Computed example of a mutant assay.
Amino acid sequence: MLMRRVAAALLTMVALAAWATPAHAATRVLYYDASQAQEFVAVVNQGAQIWNSKVTTVRLEPVPAGRTPNIRVYADNGWPRTYTSSLGNGYWYMGREAVNDGYSKPRIAAHEFGHILGLPDRRTGLCADLMSGSSAPVSCTNANPNSTEAATVNRLFGTSVAVPAGYFTERAA
């Protein structure tokens, strides 16, 4: 009899905890500053919108006046690269070298945002994999994360898992 009461109490507590727990974590907003991305500002915005259309736990927004951005985007003549300080924080370069080599600008922008969102390079060579980066053919224009990449970002931001700081570059060794 005592065991039944204990079991019933435990079931009630579990049910109450499940009812009180929100089904989805609040969407985390990350602010980015593309003011130094030079001729690539529009494509940086496009890369952010691609991610916003594919994930639910994080949203990339242009930094409003008076706020410090989580992400800064620059342009230079080198290869695209990203430096992260923690999950959702860091800076990246829209490198003209890859653009001049013929790589898709929206794919580059979405890929570099992917690093800020916690994804490493995969170098699968598949155009369907956004994080395959420059291992995919130059002709690849797919700028959308695949379902696994989007699910990983949703999981990372839904659970607030710490992702270590890192440096990512697209140039193959």
Rank of each mutant, 00 (worst) to 15 (best):
M1R: 12
M3K: 14
V6D: 02
A7R: 15
A9P: 00
L10Y: 14
L11S: 12
V14H: 03
A15T: 13
A15H: 06
W19L: 15
T21P: 01
A25M: 07
A25I: 00
V29K: 13
V29G: 01
L30R: 05
L30E: 12
L30W: 06
Y32V: 04
Y32L: 10
A34Q: 14
A37G: 10
E39P: 05
F40P: 00
V41G: 08
A42D: 15
V43E: 14
V44F: 10
V44D: 08
N45G: 13
N45V: 04
Q46E: 13
Q49A: 14
Q49F: 01
K54I: 00
V55S: 02
V58M: 04
E61Y: 03
E61H: 06
P62E: 09
V63C: 14
V63H: 10
P64S: 11
P64L: 11
P64V: 09
T68N: 12
P69D: 12
P69F: 10
N70E: 15
N70T: 08
N70Q: 15
I71K: 02
R72P: 01
V73S: 07
V73I: 14
N77H: 11
N77P: 00
T82H: 07
Y83F: 14
T84D: 02
G88T: 08
N89R: 11
Y93K: 00
Y93R: 06
M94W: 05
R96S: 08
R96A: 13
E97V: 05
E97M: 12
A98L: 13
A98H: 03
A98C: 03
N100C: 01
G102D: 06
S104C: 10
K105G: 01
K105A: 15
P106V: 08
H111P: 03
F113N: 09
I116C: 01
I116K: 00
D121F: 00
R123C: 04
R123F: 13
T124R: 02
G125C: 07
L126R: 15
L126C: 04
L126E: 12
A128N: 11
M131A: 03
G133P: 05
S134D: 07
S134Q: 12
S134Y: 13
A136H: 07
P137E: 08
N142F: 05
N144E: 15
N144P: 01
N146W: 00
S147Y: 02
T148I: 06
T152M: 12
L156N: 05
F157M: 00
G158Q: 05
G158V: 02
A162Y: 13
V163S: 03
V163N: 02
Y167H: 11
Y167I: 10
F168H: 15
F168T: 04
F168Q: 10
A172V: 06
A173T: 03
